[in-house]
Structure formats: structure tokens, C-alpha cells
């Protein structure tokens, strides 16, 4: 099937709520950092925006917006230690198996198989809430996040939006 036209759907949704026309970020170029060492020597961290928190943490606000909360998730957390609170996608499948959207166990398996060097000590869940204050992302939240990735010597960030 053809990919869903999320931009059109969201524009219609915002219009139906009486919101002004949303000004999407449209970029024509992107940076690229090349890595010299093989994947088998790289440290990988995962970032999800799917409203996923550990059961011993407070849940995300499922209807949030401009929520810059970012949780660190220990790389050894098991699949049954997560909860999902996000009203903007259907997480029935991810409730059954967190790896549908946040492949923490699958990454561990690639590490165990020697295909990936190591998982970072911390994975990440956040930036979930329809964030419209982009300046705060650019100037504060994203640089703070990058500092934490550097603390963990992360080579590769695997990002899974939901």
C-alpha cells in the first residue's frame, strides 16, 4: 500500500481543531558523520519517542505536548519492565512486545552475536510530546541529550519515532 500521508492528515486534524496552519520544518540538506570502525566495534544507544517508561517510573502524559522529558533506561532492562502511555499511536502490539518499537532485546542479541560492539549503558525515551517549541530543542534539550550520549561514548544513535 502507499505510505500514509501523515502531513496531509495532520494538517487536516489541526485545521479541524481551529489551529493556525502548522509550519513544518523542511530541510534540503543534512549532515553526515562517517564512522571509520566497523559496527562490531561500535557502541549503540536507542532513542524512542513512544511514551515508553519503566514501570518503576511515573508514566508519560499520553496527551502531552511540548514535553521535553527524557528518561534514561538501563540497557539491561527486561521486556516486561516497561509501560506505554501515548494517545497518538496504537501501541497494542508494543504493549505485547516492546521490541516492536524499542528493540532493546534484539540489540542485546546482536551484541551477544558479536555483530554490534556493545549497547550503551543507557538507552533513552522522551521528546514524545508533540514538541512545537523547536528553539528549545535546538538550544537546550538536544544538546543536553548529546552530552549524555558522549558521556556513554555512543557511536551510533538508533532513533525510532512513534
Amino acid at each position: 500500500m502507499e505510505p500514509i500521508k501523515y502531513v496531509d492528515e495532520l494538517n487536516n486534524h489541526y485545521r479541524s481543531l481551529g489551529h493556525p496552519v502548522y509550519r513544518w520544518t523542511i530541510n534540503s540538506t543534512a549532515p553526515l558523520h562517517r564512522i571509520d570502525k566497523p559496527l562490531s566495534e561500535c557502541t549503540v544507544a536507542i532513542l524512542t519517542t513512544g511514551g515508553i517508561s519503566q514501570c518503576n517510573m511515573s508514566p508519560f502524559d499520553p496527551n502531552s505536548y511540548n514535553d521535553h522529558r527524557l528518561d534514561a533506561i538501563d540497557k539491561d532492562t527486561t521486556d516486561d519492565e516497561f509501560q506505554i502511555h501515548d494517545a497518538y499511536y496504537n501501541h497494542d502490539d508494543a504493549d505485547r512486545d516492546i521490541n516492536c518499537v524499542f528493540p532493546i532485546s534484539r540489540l542485546r542479541e546482536l551484541v551477544d552475536a558479536g555483530e554490534v560492539g556493545r549497547a550503551a549503558d543507557r538507552h533513552w525515551s522522551g521528546f514524545m510530546g508533540r514538541i512545537y517549541n523547536r528553539t528549545k530543542v535546538i538550544e537546550e534539550s538536544a544538546p543536553a541529550f548529546v552530552s549524555k550520549l558522549n558521556e556513554d561514548a555512543v557511536d551510533i544513535l538508533l532513533a525510532a519515532p512513534a
Binding site: H33, V137, F145, V146, L149, N150, L157, L158
Partner: peptide
């Protein structure tokens, strides 16, 4: 946007 900022800081995304 977060990926672009991480990439500019030499983390491959």
C-alpha cells in the same frame, strides 16, 4: 531534528 543535532556532534544516527 534531534538526529541532525547529534550528527553534527559526531554521533552517527
Amino acid at each position: 531534528l534531534v538526529c541532525r543535532i547529534a550528527e553534527e556532534a559526531n554521533i552517527a544516527t
